[in-house]
């Protein structure tokens, strides 16, 4: 049981790290849009057309992509 004296402080250190990470993520704007991300992860992605800057620079591709 004496191991508790080490394990609990270790758990606290992890807790501190988790809080730090979370605060960093909030500050960097990753939680700005909770509704959209919650929806997006469950939405069916049938249309894999992604904004890809390389493809856009090529006029041939962009023409065929055009509606």
């Amino acid at each position: 049981m004496a191991s508790l004296y080490i394990l609990i402080p270790v758990a606290l250190v992890f807790c501190v790290i988790a809080i730090k990470l979370l605060l960093w993520a909030i500050s960097s704007g990753q939680y700005e849009d909770l509704d959209k991300e919650a929806w997006r992860i469950l939405a069916d992605e049938e249309d894999p057309v992604e904004p890809d800057s390389d493809a856009k620079d090529n006029p041939a591709t962009s023409e065929s992509d055009k509606q």
């Binding site: 849009d33 800057s53 856009k56």
Partner: peptide, 11 residues
């Protein structure tokens, strides 16, 4: 054509 990134913030 010409659009390289479009992101909408719902909030």
């Amino acid at each position: 054509p010409g659009v390289s990134r479009a992101l909408v913030n719902l909030q």
